[in-house]
Simulated assay, not measured.
Amino acid sequence: MRVWIFFVLCLAGRALAAPQQDALPEEEEAIEDVATEEAVVGSNPVQVEVGEFDEAIAEEEEEETTTENPCLNHHCKHGKVCEVDESSKPVCVCQDPSTCPESVGEFEKVCGNDNKTYDSSCHFFATKCTLEGTKKGRKLHLDYIGPCKYIPACMDSELTEFPLSMRDWLKNVLVSLYERDENNNLLNEKQKLRVKKIHENEKRLEAGDHPVELLARDFEKNYNMYIFPVHWQFGQLDQRPIDGYLSRAELSPLRAPLIPMEHCTTRFFEECDLDSDKYIALDEWAKCFGIKDDDVDQDMIV
């Protein structure tokens, strides 16, 4: 778990970004221009910058506010750039992948679900845009951050252990945010009150690498400490739109960084979709993390 937290904290250095809407694996992308206010990345270290793997959210195109350059305030979704047409109006067109900035290191590379390594997220989304309207384009999505590599199959025994470490991680991420807050608005007041109780509990298992037996025993003895962190993360991911369901794109800020390190990540989230509708509801999410039905509370997402 220490590796997880270090990795994500390194990636998320600015302020909180909201995830985006898409479908779970194999869903055709049909989500169009969702207008929301852009948040800043970093207050939630579980997430990395949404812009790196937003493959379906088309930002609302703003009205022209200058006569000098119509594209100055005209925003396009990832993979597209603004150009001025014959009528001097701004339009979004697919970016030529060859015009993307040259990558400067392995950390910029991303892996698509076509098992192809792209030099950067810019190259990936530009390529995806050129395939827009095709079957291949609809199915293509960013799989994880980093070059493509061999991901071993997740065994049943490993899948059983996965939520133990995930629960512990989410709890300690919240505690870390609480300790670092100091008027930085990393958590709102209601969240601070809930995390304060966890932070001050002397029985709390400190962050670190723990054997699964200890994690299981701690979850059983200190079950109430884990209820809010599970709800909190659901609320952090359910943003575009806020509808009580997690799509594949909304899961991306949490899922994409973890796959290269935790090979059960994909299978875990797939099996959370109990009714196989390609969306994860709050009750399905809670059940994945071992939260009892009676403790699932929509009002806890604050």
Rank of each mutant, 00 (worst) to 15 (best):
S43E: 09
G133T: 09
F53W: 08
F53E: 03
S103Y: 02
P101A: 06
V40Y: 08
E62S: 15
S165L: 05
T99R: 09
L140R: 01
M155I: 07
V91Q: 09
S87K: 09
F125S: 04
E62R: 14
E106N: 14
P163T: 01
I151T: 12
D168A: 07
F53H: 03
E86Y: 14
K77V: 02
F124L: 11
N69D: 14
N115I: 08
P70A: 08
L142M: 13
N115T: 09
M155F: 11
V46P: 01
D119W: 02
D156S: 14
V46R: 02
D143W: 08
E68R: 09
E83T: 12
A58I: 13
F124T: 00
K128F: 08
G79V: 00
H75R: 14
C82W: 02
E64S: 13
F124W: 06
F124D: 01
V50F: 06
E64T: 14
Y144W: 13
C122L: 14
R138L: 15
V48P: 00
V50G: 04
D96C: 07
V104R: 08
Y118C: 03
E106S: 14
C76K: 01
S103D: 03
M155R: 14
E60I: 14
E55N: 12
E59S: 15
E64D: 15
E52Y: 03
T130R: 07
E68P: 01
K116N: 14
V110S: 00
T65V: 14
C71V: 04
C129A: 06
K80F: 03
Q47W: 00
F124C: 04
D143M: 12
N73A: 10
P97Q: 06
L164M: 11
S43C: 10
G133A: 12
V50M: 07
S87V: 05
P90M: 01
E102K: 03
V48F: 02
P152D: 05
R167K: 12
S98D: 11
Y118E: 01
A126F: 07
G137T: 06
R167P: 01
V48N: 01
C148R: 12
T160K: 07
E108L: 06
T117E: 02
T67H: 11
K136L: 12
K109E: 14
E62P: 04
E63A: 09
D143R: 13
D156M: 10
F162R: 00
C94R: 04
V93F: 05
E68M: 12
V50P: 03
K77G: 09
K109A: 13
H78A: 03
E55C: 15
E64H: 04
C100F: 05
P152G: 05
V91D: 05
A58D: 15
N69F: 07
E64F: 10
E55Q: 15
H141Q: 13
A56S: 15
S43M: 09
E161Q: 15
P70C: 07
V91M: 06
H74E: 09
G137H: 05
N115S: 14
L164S: 00
C148V: 15
L159T: 05
T117Y: 03
P90R: 02
M166R: 02
T130P: 05
Q95W: 05
I57G: 01
G137V: 10
E52Q: 06
P97C: 05
F125M: 11
D156G: 08
E63D: 08
Y144C: 07
A58H: 13
V41I: 11
D168Q: 06
I151Y: 09
R167W: 00
G133Y: 09
Q47V: 03
K139I: 13
A39F: 04
V81S: 04
